[in-house]
Amino acid sequence: MKLFGKSAKIFTGIILVLVSVFPSYWLLAMSVRPMDEMRGRISLIPSSLTLEHFRNLFTEKDFSRALANSLQVSLISLAFSLVFGVCAAYVLTRQRFRFRAKKPFNFWILIVRILPPVAFTIPLYTMFNRLGLLSTKIPALLSCILINIPFIVWFMVSFFQRLPEDIEKSARIDGASEWQLFTRIVLPLAAPGIAAVTMLSFLYAWNEYTYSIIFVQSPKNYTIPLTLATLNSEDSLTNFGLVAAGGIMSVLPVLAFVVFAQNYLIAGLSGGAVKE
C-alpha cells in the first residue's frame, strides 16, 4: 500500500522521532548542564557536563529517602498484588471451580478499572485517618494494591483463558493435587503473562501520584513523584537541574524494562486492554 511518497516518508519519520524524543532529551540535557549554562540563551547541546545536580539531589534534598520509599512501596505492593491477583484470576477462569461470587467479582473488577479514583478516595481517607495511618507509608502501599489487583486479574483472566483446561483435568486424573497442578504446571505456562503484568504493575506503582498526593502527608514518606512535585513548586532556576536530575532517576526502571524485556512490556501494554 503506497500511502506516503518517499521524501514525505522521511520527513514524517524525522518529525515523529523529534517530537517523541525531544522532551526526554531535554530532561537529560538539563540534568547534566552546569548552572551558568542555564541562564541567558540556552544551547541545544550543553557545552560542558556536570553531575552537580545529581549530587545536590542526594545531599540537599535527601533523594535517597524518596528512592527508598518508592522502591519499598512499589515492590511490596507488587508482591501482594501479584500473588492475590494471579491466584484469583486462575480460579475465575477455571470451569471446574464454581461459586456464586464468581460473576459479580469479575464484573466488579471491570467496574473498578473504569471508575475514577475519586469514587473511593474520601472514605479511604477517613478510614486511614481513623486508623492513624496517614503519617505512614501504608496508605500509599494500599493504593497501589488497589490499582494493581484489578489490572492483574483482568489481564491474567484473558491470559489463563487461552491456556486449555484439559491438561489440568488429565493431570488431576493422574493424581496431582490442585496446589501441585497450579504451582508446577499452570504457573510455568503463565510465566510470559506474569512477566508482562509484573513490569506494568511495578510501573503503575512507581508512577502513582493521585492517591499519594492525598494520602501521604509527611514529607519523610514522599515517593519520587511527590518529591519531584515539591521541587517543581519552588519555582527557581536552581531547581531546574534538581528536577531534571530527579526526572532522570524516575525513568531508570522503565529504561531497564525497555532495554532488557521490551517484548513483555509491549505485550502487557497492548494486552491489558482497559488501561490504568
Partner: peptide, 22 residues
Amino acid sequence: LRTVILLPYLLPTVTAALSWRM
C-alpha cells in the same frame, strides 16, 4: 520506531509534565 514512539507513554506522568514545564 515503535520503541521510540512509545517513549512518551512510558515516562512517569509527573516526569513528563515537569519536562514540559521546563
